[in-house]
Design a protein around this nucleic acid. Structure first.
Lengths: 222, 222
DNA sequence: TGAGCTTATATTGTCGACAATAAATCGAAA
DNA sequence: TTTCGATTTATTGTCGACAATATAAGCTCA
């Protein structure tokens, strides 16, 4: 998966990526305090670098900072996840609409072939790629919107937080074949340049996903 | 206007607010470079403080940073403004939907009285409060969504950039009475708890506003 | 003359030390 | 014993200096 062309340049970049990974994957516990001095010894960089990394983590909504007190990793809550999905529904719906308007024919063709590849993988039971495939699909449509601001808000501002929820609340989930069909319909709408339908189908797709998570949270009781 | 309860605590806070104001209002030119040493003498703080302020400005999409090169104030372009309004349409539409669901009756009553006040002001020709009133209206609905993430993305991540466009491209605009009617209809839908309609009306309201801006940009040629 | 390389310069990135603030500890009085 | 206040301690905020990088200037050679 040749996802983000993010490659660290400065030490702050590198530390930011490492910290983000450790937070998203739960190596640094949700809700825990981030001590600057502690982290600076752990990651072998100065406090200035740690501070910059923490500032960036705050921008992605992964940590919360209070003046003269410090930073904490965000606490994960069912309500927080619901709120996140409400915003996601709205923004990715718009992304699908804009993708129907702005994606080139060749990009749409690529998207179709991606979907076919997923179909083969699902058939052969390679559940490993399910989440990656899902992420990839949504990622391409987001980029397909060609709206820089929208892309930034979704990728920089929400993607990693969503992933954090997925990883830590264990949302690998089934919902594979139905989600796949939904993806197909969305791409169909996009290739028909039907903006209205593309937005509506994407919103429903995310609403279903949200509902699926909600029932899961109820049964397992988080 | 008792808007943001943002009050500076640290020197970095203060500098961030000052810098943001100077950028939004154009005292620091759009597209210009931000020299850290220069700013540190200008604002009488160390470079560390300036760096933190610039990092935060980057989070609000007011400046863009490149590693080992520096930060520039964003360049304003008609395309950028359109993109911004697309995201705004999507998010504020969702905000209106959630406001219809989550605002308390008393909050809705307050919103109504705000609108009546605006009506009086418009009647008596106090065009001064037009923009402030418009901003206040939208701000209350955003808060009414009760969705922290949505609020953060809109207020922290978009509001000041939108204001920067308004100020620097001179969008005080007419569109007063029609916008006022639209506001009234939106509040009506919210007080009826009609989520669907509230979202739709808000989206249209912002679409009209966007269209209004577009024609303006065409005639005056930016 | 100009293309490519080298050197110089200015700017950003990183660091450790000090100052300021908030939390924790301790002590005194009711 | 408990509550309020003072003192200590730990953490964050701020600073100036140094290192690393990128851009600009100058130089060499075809």
């Amino acid at each position: 998966m040749t996802f983000f062309n993010e490659q660290p340049i400065t030490a702050a970049d590198k530390t930011f990526f490492e910290l983000r990974k450790d937070i998203v994957e739960g190596d640094i516990q949700a809700g825990s305090k981030l001590s600057e001095t502690e982290l600076s010894t752990k990651y072998q960089v100065s406090r200035a670098v740690i501070r910059e990394a923490i500032n960036r983590l705050e921008s992605c909504h992964l940590v919360e900072r209070k003046a003269n007190v410090g930073a904490r990793v965000v606490a994960l809550s069912p309500e927080g996840l619901i709120e996140l999905y409400q915003v996601r529904e709205s923004l990715e719906g718009m992304a699908a609409r804009l993708a129907a308007k702005n994606m080139s024919d060749s990009e749409i063709a690529d998207l179709n072939s991606l979907l076919n590849r997923h179909f083969d993988e699902v058939q052969s039971g390679e559940s490993y790629y399910q989440e990656a495939g899902d992420v990839d699909f949504h990622y391409r449509i987001i980029l397909g919107s060609k709206n820089k601001h929208l892309i930034s808000v979704l990728i920089d501002g929400m993607y990693h937080l969503i992933r954090m929820y997925r990883v830590q609340l264990g949302m690998a989930g089934p919902r594979v074949t139905t989600a796949f069909d939904e993806h197909k319909h969305i791409v169909k709408a996009i290739s028909n340049r039907d903006e209205e339908l593309a937005e509506m189908l994407m919103r429903r797709h995310i609403m279903y996903s949200k509902a699926n998570i909600e029932t899961k949270l109820e049964t397992q009781g988080s």
